Simulated assay, not measured.
Amino acid sequence: MRALFPGSFDPVTQGHKDILRRAALLFDEVVVCVMFNSNKTGRSPVTERLDRLCAAATDLSNVTVDSHTGGLLVDYCRRVGIDVVIRGVRGVADLDYEMPMARMNHELAGVETFFIAADPALAHISSTLVTTMSQQEPVPK
């Protein structure tokens, strides 16, 4: 079975890499796809994100990397023949955010959502946090 792991991946985090590795163990093929969210402003160029995802998947023979501009996630799923979307969830807030989208994807195109719980050691990590921390000035000792 083929599955899609979509996201902005801006930047690619250890949490993303963990979900990708675990998904690769569960599905015959995983397509990790940089999606464009009109509610988010990209910080890194798409080519850079794709390169980082390719690097994260070098030892995962059943993972391919792609990008999608415009249209709904289900449009991409229909175009490439994918029936399952993978979403990593860090906690209840993520699940509350993801559930309406999962339901809509199912209603619109019969696409199922497979939730993978974040590794507790990585659950505090978000792309926003990584970006914010990387922009901070080091604290003098």
Rank of each mutant, 00 (worst) to 15 (best):
V30R: 13
R52L: 07
Y76H: 06
T64Q: 12
N39S: 14
A123H: 05
R87E: 02
S127M: 14
E98M: 06
H106L: 06
T131V: 15
T69S: 15
R78Y: 07
C77K: 03
C33L: 13
D96L: 12
L53I: 07
S8Q: 00
L108S: 01
M104F: 00
R79D: 13
H68T: 15
D28R: 12
N62A: 14
V74D: 00
E107L: 15
C77E: 06
V32Q: 02
V111T: 02
T131S: 13
L53M: 01
Q14C: 05
A102F: 03
M35S: 13
S44N: 15
T13N: 13
K17C: 09
S44E: 10
T113E: 00
T13K: 10
A93T: 14
F115I: 01
S67P: 11
T132C: 09
R49D: 06
F36I: 13
I82K: 11
G15R: 07
V30D: 12
E107R: 09
S67F: 15
S38N: 13
V31S: 02
Q135C: 09
S61I: 11
Q136L: 11
V85E: 04
T113A: 02
L25K: 12
A117K: 00
S127V: 11
S38M: 08
V92L: 14
G70S: 05
